[in-house]
Amino acid sequence: MRKCAFLSMDSLENFDCYDHLLFNPLADKGWAVEEVSWRDKQVDWNQFEVVVVRSPWDYQKDPEAFFKVLQEIDRSTARLENKLDLIKWNIDKTYLRDLESRGIEIVPSIWEDTFSIEQYPRFFEELSSSEIIIKPTISAGADDTFRIKRKDHKQYTDQLAKLFEQRPFIVQPFMPHIVEEGEFSLFYFGDTYSHTILKTPEQNDFRVQEEHGGRLKKVEPEKELRSLGQEILEQLNPAPLYTRVDFVRTEQDSFALMELELIEPSLYFNMDPESPQRFAEVFHNWVQGSN
């Protein structure tokens, strides 16, 4: 059996992870999979033929240490997926600016390096919104993400000033369709479209992650949504083994890019019974084609 590592974290106890659904389909292709924490300093990466970054959902707490581990893997004989250059670009949400400059519609965004109490009120004016979202440019799982109404903004001032004193962040208008309809996620393995799900937050929340009570439903994407996902996929170089593209519907009935996930997205293999086999097929051919 050929050896593959799924890069994970010390414990997934409080997370919903579906990567185990890949173990049997990959075994049928001759691959033995081992989940390995990125914090394990004793692991010899040379023992694996491929290391797939899958569920290191605490990397945002120490992104520099995480990236050093990825560099170590990249220097080993193991093949890293997705590629280091892609991860380096995707780890900071400023990649959204790059995609916007290439004609991709994103959620309107303000980018700040440090928090200013004096400038804080202007976010509502610039975004023409009575409600905003503030989150770090390096984040995962909705950590340190705030939904703030204009009338309540002063009560967050001290917390934001402390959290973003020396930490870049992004400000966006709250998108009503997140709660009215949900967030669409399209999944690709290589250049193969796999499936789409709609994630909706629980009542009185805006976070769509399962850990925060989000609900999932498999859907058939509209033609425009499929086209947008494909357009973004074709702009990525080097090509990713896996891609998740998150969209929200705008008030103008277009679709705006929320996130492009190339590092550690849940791929929701539980929502499409054929997706584990589909991934295993693409993965095996992907590695074979490079040898």
Rank of each mutant, 00 (worst) to 15 (best):
S8D: 15
M9N: 15
S11E: 12
L12P: 01
N14A: 14
D16V: 15
C17P: 01
D19A: 10
H20P: 05
N24Q: 15
A27G: 01
V33D: 00
E35A: 14
Q47D: 11
S55P: 07
K61M: 15
D62Y: 10
F67G: 00
L70Q: 07
R75E: 12
A78G: 10
L80G: 10
K83L: 02
L86A: 10
K93M: 04
Y95P: 02
D98Q: 12
G103V: 04
I104V: 10
I104G: 02
I106Y: 00
I110D: 05
W111P: 00
F115Y: 03
Q119A: 12
R122N: 11
E125I: 12
I134S: 07
A140S: 15
G141I: 02
A142P: 02
I148T: 04
D152L: 13
Q159T: 13
L160Q: 09
A161H: 00
L163Y: 04
E165H: 13
E165Q: 14
I170S: 02
P173M: 07
F174V: 00
F174T: 00
I178Q: 03
I178P: 04
V179R: 09
E181V: 11
F187L: 06
Y188Q: 04
T196I: 06
L198V: 06
Q209T: 09
G214A: 04
G214W: 09
K217H: 12
K217P: 07
V219T: 06
P221R: 04
P221E: 03
R226I: 11
G229M: 03
N237Q: 15
P238G: 07
P240Q: 03
R244C: 05
V245S: 04
M258E: 01
E261A: 08
P265N: 09
S266T: 12
D272P: 11
R278A: 08
R278L: 11
F279E: 06
F283L: 02
N285M: 11
V287I: 14
Q288H: 14
Q288S: 14
